[in-house]
Nucleic acid binder design. Sequence first.
DNA 1: AATGCTGATTACTTATAGGTAACTGATATA
DNA 2: TATATCAGTTACCTATAAGTAATCAGCATT
Lengths: 114, 114
Amino acid sequence: MEKRNYVECTKVLLPLRDALDVISGKWKLPILIAINHGNKRFREIERSIPKITTKVLAKELKDLEEHKLIKRTVYDSSPVLIEYSTLPYAGTLDKVVEELVDWGINHRKQVLGK
Amino acid sequence: MEKRNYVECTKVLLPLRDALDVISGKWKLPILIAINHGNKRFREIERSIPKITTKVLAKELKDLEEHKLIKRTVYDSSPVLIEYSTLPYAGTLDKVVEELVDWGINHRKQVLGK
DNA sequence: AATGCTGATTACTTATAGGTAACTGATATA
DNA sequence: TATATCAGTTACCTATAAGTAATCAGCATT
């Protein structure tokens, strides 16, 4: 018989960590949202997210592509046109985002004092 | 008439940013979960979260207290006993956490390959 | 010919999150 | 008396996130 002087909760902590690894950071969810709102081009996304920089956007777009959340399409026009779009898998984050946004709206009202 | 060459989405981005400011980082949600599972004492919480350090735990507990998500109770026994517990406001994060955990479970299966 | 837009990349710097390890004073146990 | 536990604090260091600013080639506009 071991004495366990705490309550085990790793079964919840591990998947939570997995999720946070993908979506945490300042920019990933904002970028997904910007694309979902219809911003497809690099500069459109950049302009739609206040304070983001070119460098950070480029890096985060790569991360999101690697995580299979968005895809990058190159149209062989002249000049070449590049479009970003969310993949179906990104849709699985919709409820998470929705909950976060609702929580943020309420938090601003209740705690940050409007 | 202004030409707007991107789609506005700050109405969503601002509350999302507010929410991420409170819960993002590696440790805040894990700590809330550990407390919700019944770990009340400092060392219990510490032991229930793999890899967390004393220093980080102390700092994050202060942050969570400031954000009105937990409270710290000092029992004037001998020796003094300190207990952390979640405040009702922390319950408003339950759905967010639930969605994140579910997403993490699925992500591990689908993308990380079990 | 000069300027500006596209989708970026690069080098450099700063800020912040987090990790390491030692240590505290009060109390309790062996 | 020695050791351990409790709830932390402190100083120092490192790794990563993010910001600043310049630059790129290709093309279009003025």
